[in-house]
């Protein structure tokens, strides 16, 4: 508060060279009035603003996905989802060329995914980890591939499906999600 006063006062010349005495009186009066005004306004009770954040879900819904991924987007996102690291630019370019050279893109994608699963550094939970907390696995899989949460019906169906298919592994679940139509859109 003191510094504000000083600043205001310092705006007024303190050693005039050519003003009259009445001018000096006027200036002094104005300075005094300003100081009083500042004091009055500063003495008001401080209002404390309360700011709150409204939680906005950052996950998308299936209904919002209406743009088809390009080949390059598909392979980049797929690689990240499976390896938890970024694919190189040259690999994206080469895979795009390969995709263009195969008429049925579903076949090309199946071939690519099954090649990826043959690589040692693919990031997959084990079957035991999946079964230890199936609910969490399903939720995480939806978030990883679809960038959204499953609804209760989806959770229930997928849980029952995995439990009733003894050969179902995290790899095959990921395979299904990566091939699904929803995954082709964003």
């Amino acid at each position: 508060m003191n510094s504000e006063k000083k600043n205001l006062i310092s705006l007024v010349p303190t050693s005039p060279t050519c003003e009259t005495k009445s001018d000096q009186t006027t200036i002094a009066a104005l300075a005094a009035l300003s100081a009083i005004a500042v004091c009055i306004s500063s003495c008001k009770k401080e209002q404390v603003g309360v700011f709150e954040l409204t939680e906005v879900p950052l996950v998308s819904t299936a209904a919002e996905k209406d743009k088809l991924k390009t080949n390059q987007q598909f392979v980049s996102i797929l690689y990240t989802n499976l390896f938890q690291s970024a694919i190189s630019g040259s690999d994206v370019f080469e895979l795009d060329q390969l995709f263009q050279s195969v008429g049925d893109s579903e076949v090309a994608k199946e071939v690519l995914i099954s090649n990826f699963f043959n690589e040692s550094n693919v990031q997959l939970p084990t079957v035991a980890e999946m079964n230890a907390d199936l609910e969490a696995f399903i939720v995480e899989t939806y978030k990883r591939f679809f960038v959204r949460l499953p609804n209760e019906a989806e959770k229930a169906w997928v849980r029952n499906f995995i439990q009733s298919n003894p050969y179902m592994t995290p790899e095959l679940v990921y395979f299904s999600f990566a091939l699904s139509n929803e995954y082709q859109f964003y």
């Binding site: 049925d104 997928v158 499906f161 179902m168 299904s176 699904s180 139509n181 929803e182």
Partner: peptide, 24 residues
């Protein structure tokens, strides 16, 4: 077979929102 079955479920769910992907 189960992999395609799960994919079919996912596709059916997506189709409820109007999402579909034509193929050869």
């Amino acid at each position: 077979a189960p992999m395609y079955a799960l994919k079919a479920f996912l596709d059916n769910t997506f189709a409820q929102y109007g999402g579909a992907l034509d193929a050869i």
